[in-house]
Write a protein that binds this DNA or RNA. Structure first.
Lengths: 161, 161
DNA sequence: TTGCTCCTCACGTCACGTGAGGTGGC
DNA sequence: TTGCTCCTCACGTCACGTGAGGTGGC
């Protein structure tokens, strides 16, 4: 993609080298970008979360265009904030409705809040893990004072759960 | 528990009102503290992750003492940083060995790093979700300028994945 | 020919969730 | 008696993962 330069048009354009539309992604690329595995992408398509994913004329292979890729990335954010597949299906259904802007706003705002709360919990857990690492480090070094301090630190973190 | 006050001893002591050892937790309390569901706690016990959970003499109900509760909380931190059940079993096995301090230090340090990386990714996803909420908010308000700004913001966040 | 990526379809797996049927103290 | 929490055990479910068997361009 780098070095193509000079193209300022927005319409899809063919890459002379690969014959693929520039910007379209293979399933492997889509998996890496989104964090979903390849089987998961096929699974989501099968159960109707992605609609019709475009295919390469010749090979029949999936080609994720920018619209599909955008949807996949939105789903990845919702999934990683703890939304179930049922919840994602609800999102996709809303997208198909022309009058659902307010519901969509609400859905994203809710999930942003949920994710923020989850991040806070994970930060406490992170402090716990590093306190535990410190504790075992003190034990490895046979440093009784550091161990006592680490024990105190672990207990303090536990109280924050 | 509040109002018991005045007790500075460390040994378990019986609560006159409930007949339970002070500090011991029911399965419901353990579930709330750890974030695991009750079935999950029973499941983990069944597959050997918790060893022998103490039982109430009379009722036969589970009573999570402080040692068990500490283990459950450690497992909760490892689980929420993405460790599999197999990984948690490895942790439990290390705990049983007297010479595994270095491995345990490494295990916690690794998982602290992993969790830190995960938190960073989630923060980007959070920005994406709130940018999307802003986008749909602009659409609800029919504010074309805000919508254009929101589109830009969403694209900027996407580039950070 | 080898190696690589992709395909479909069926079955397997992981980590629980649920529900039936039952107990024991206020 | 009712309501509440807890129990065991079997089966169900969710969200994929894996593996067999096959294709198509370098």
């Amino acid at each position: 993609l780098a070095g193509v330069g000079g193209c300022v048009c927005r319409a899809p354009i063919m890459d002379c080298q690969t014959g693929r539309m520039i910007g379209d992604l293979t399933i492997r690329e889509m998996a890496q970008r989104s964090g979903f595995s390849e089987p998961t992408l096929r699974y989501y398509e099968k159960i109707g979360l992605l609609g019709a994913v475009p295919r390469d004329r010749d090979s029949g292979y999936r080609r994720y265009d920018s619209a599909t890729a955008e949807r996949v990335e939105a789903l990845a954010c919702l999934r990683s904030s703890g939304m179930s597949v049922t919840g994602m299906r609800r999102y996709v259904d809303l997208l198909a409705r022309p009058d659902a802007a307010e519901e969509l706003r609400q859905l994203f705002a809710d999930h942003a809040d949920r994710l923020a709360a989850q991040i806070e919990r994970l930060q406490v857990r992170h402090e716990y893990l590093s306190a535990k690492a410190g504790l075992w480090d003190a034990r490895v070094r046979h440093d009784a004072e550091a161990e006592a301090n680490a024990v105190t630190r672990v207990k303090e973190v536990l109280d924050r759960f």
